[in-house]
Design a protein around this nucleic acid. Structure first.
Lengths: 129, 129
DNA sequence: ATGAGTGTAATAGATAACTATAACACTAGG
DNA sequence: CCTAGTGTTATAGTTATCTATTACACTCAT
């Protein structure tokens, strides 16, 4: 996995776990890959994986069973809130940034639409290459 | 200034300088505050300011005149490109993130519109408090 | 009981970022 | 010439992150 060296790896691993859960790759209640296995897959140290998981366990996103493994929570409320929270946080961050660059609300929406249209054409083009 | 401890301060200072320029607070050709002054304003060390400025100078965004000061470039092309580049990079980042969270293009646009509407109401409410 | 597979934790060393401090280089005005 | 104001650089010490390694704690099948 490619990490952005501007932000701590353990922090990016947390985001990675969120994505696996929200996209359904790791279903509620299912067991995660072993920490040593995750460390190999992410080409990272076990301690770094553990640091990320520790915070997710504290947040009840994951359930840790010593000697057995780590599991995705089955608490539907937690999972539903998580997905919405991640999206809202992301939107809030980009909104603040673009406002700080002097864009109006309408310009932000238009810029996003234009970006997606352009991006769609590019992806299609790349696909046909 | 409040910094996010998840990303290097010198990197955030670069973003700060971009904002000052793009929002017109620092006009093309004008002199920046002295590095020691900036360090005080940002409550940061001179070396950290200098590290940020060094990269901006290398990118020709700023012009350094030893013994005189640092100045915003007057190259209109550079400035126009810069503003557009920052917006596009920001949009690209949030787009990738939201796609990774399984949102469709249309859902991204809708979520952004909804967020801005909600945010607008909240700001208005806060303002009247 | 033993061993394989799991999570958890501690140590020591490396590196990057940041700080405080000092020094050096250049410009302009008196 | 000298001084104040500017950018630039270097050193040393601190902290956070990450790594490698080792050890410990628990579960389960045999």
């Amino acid at each position: 996995m490619q990490f952005d060296d501007k932000v701590p790896i353990y922090y990016q691993i947390k985001q990675y776990v969120y994505q696996q859960i929200i996209t359904g790759k790791w279903q509620p209640g299912t067991q995660l890959p072993a920490v040593r296995q995750l460390a190999v897959e992410l080409t990272v140290n076990v301690n770094t994986v553990q640091r990320a998981l520790r915070e997710l366990i504290a947040a009840q996103i994951l359930i840790s069973k010593r000697g057995k493994g780590n599991f995705v929570t089955t608490d539907q409320t937690t999972l539903a809130t998580l997905a919405d929270q991640l999206v809202q946080d992301r939107l809030g961050a980009v909104y603040d940034d673009l406002r700080a660059l002097n864009l109006t609300d309408q310009q932000i929406i238009t810029a996003m639409q234009t970006y997606i249209e352009k991006r769609g054409r590019q992806d299609e083009h790349d696909f046909n290459d």
